[in-house]
């Protein structure tokens, strides 16, 4: 055996073995990405982005549920006394002034998906109660009681006319 016989070089073999494992592993990981990514929302799902709602038909004290990106959005035409009591209350475990949660105080627009596990809360006199695990929200969508960690979310929306809003565009 001559000294420059590299076939018997164990260090070189180790290096080649490790390099193969690294490149192979990276290849497997990279080829998983298209599979993982394919499970994200497709473009047609992403394009259901905005919903227009005309508010004219909702009388004071009434509420309406519309669908935005497949999620329910609650629109409530609040009365003067409701607005006053919400202004006087700081909220529950996730305190936030009512004023920060509305564009116009008489119109409350919130995503009707419980921040706990995603059920749709049911309307009560004082606000909403989630049928799944009993979370209670006030008439500003703020969490008062129950396992939900946060207030009901506010969708991005704007008034495009006095009696019309577009949800999904701030």
């Amino acid at each position: 055996m001559s000294d420059d016989d590299k076939v018997q070089d164990p260090q070189r073999r180790d290096f080649l073995g490790k390099a193969t494992a690294v490149v192979g592993g990276a290849g497997v990981a990279a080829s998983c990405w298209p599979l993982i990514s394919s499970m994200n929302p497709a473009t047609d799902v992403l394009s259901k982005a905005t919903t227009e709602v005309s508010l004219g038909a909702i009388a004071q004290g009434d509420a309406k549920t519309v669908s935005w990106q497949g999620k329910p959005v609650f629109i409530v035409h609040r009365t003067e006394s409701q607005i006053r009591s919400m202004n006087n209350s700081p909220g529950g475990k996730d305190p936030q002034p009512d004023g920060e949660r509305v564009l116009r105080p008489e119109w409350l627009v919130i995503v009707g998906v419980c921040t706990h596990l995603g059920c749709v809360p049911n309307r009560t006199a004082e606000g909403w109660t989630c049928p799944c695990h009993g979370s209670q929200y006030d008439l500003s969508g703020r969490i008062l009681k129950g396992p939900a960690p946060r207030n009901l979310e506010l969708p991005p929306y704007q008034f495009i006319a006095d009696d019309k809003i577009i949800i999904g565009k701030a």
Partner: peptide, 17 residues
């Protein structure tokens, strides 16, 4: 959650997968 469902809510994509 969105990745699991393939949509913002449980929908057609979720049912299919």
């Amino acid at each position: 959650v969105v990745w699991l469902r393939g949509d913002f809510v449980v929908g057609d994509a979720t049912l299919n997968r």
